[in-house]
């Protein structure tokens, strides 16, 4: 059996090359070709443009810190050249916090963010804060929040923009995206989508 080893090696090498060409080149290039024609927007990253300039992607979260915008979730991404330096919503270096549930560091970070959310939104010091607003997802670029933290921020946004809070809340409700096919996934608010709606004057 071992006498046939050289011929097995040659066969394996030839088969490896054939499979490499078929599955590593022809197949991905075929899918690229078809997708670029049939699903051009999706295949290129569902980019959102405003006045001809790319402002982001529908699917990729971006950082909002100003009071007149809805804020997204906590992002744990870091600078790729300096892993100790935070770089929130870095869309070229996805990462989560990986903090375990019993880690004091997770509880400390969350307490700090809970306190900040209460202060920023003029809530009383014991108000409960919705879970997704003060936790980090695994990618660091979660584009969504649930409806609860969006409604919680409506007063602040209205005040900063000098708008009627009920109109801002109505805008949030209009921009809640339901589950896919009624059942799959969770209802959510896309933060970029709702903020661009604000900028376009939808809540005036």
């Amino acid at each position: 059996m071992l006498a046939s080893l050289p011929s097995e090696l040659l066969r394996s090498l030839r088969l490896t090359l054939v499979i490499a060409v078929a599955t590593g080149l022809i197949y991905p290039l075929l899918i690229t070709g078809i997708s670029q024609v049939a699903f051009h927007d999706q295949a290129n990253g569902s980019l959102v443009t405003k006045n001809g300039q790319v402002v982001g992607s529908k699917l990729i979260g971006q950082q909002f810190t100003k009071p007149e915008y809805f804020h997204g979730r906590v992002s744990a991404t870091v600078d790729p050249n300096n892993p100790t330096k935070a770089s929130p919503y870095n869309a070229a270096n996805s990462a989560g916090s990986n903090l375990g549930p019993s880690n004091q560091a997770l509880i400390d970070r969350t307490s700090k963010d809970v306190a900040a959310a209460r202060k920023d939104n003029y809530l009383d010091p014991n108000a409960p804060i919705p879970a997704d607003l003060v936790t980090a997802d695994f990618s660091g670029v979660d584009p969504d929040i649930t409806e609860a933290p969006a409604l919680l921020q409506a007063n602040r946004v209205a005040l900063a923009r000098n708008l009627d809070p009920t109109k801002v809340r109505a805008l949030v409700e209009r921009h809640v995206q339901g589950r896919v096919l009624v059942i799959f996934g969770e209802p959510r608010v896309n933060v970029l989508d709702v903020n661009m709606a604000l900028d376009s004057g939808e809540a005036r």
Partner: peptide
């Protein structure tokens, strides 16, 4: 520490650290 993890009409709730909203 004041996090609301209940499942309600406006949020899925639960242990959301490391999870996507969608």
């Amino acid at each position: 520490v004041g996090v609301n993890q209940a499942n309600t009409a406006t949020q899925a709730g639960g242990n959301m650290e490391g999870k996507s909203v969608r």
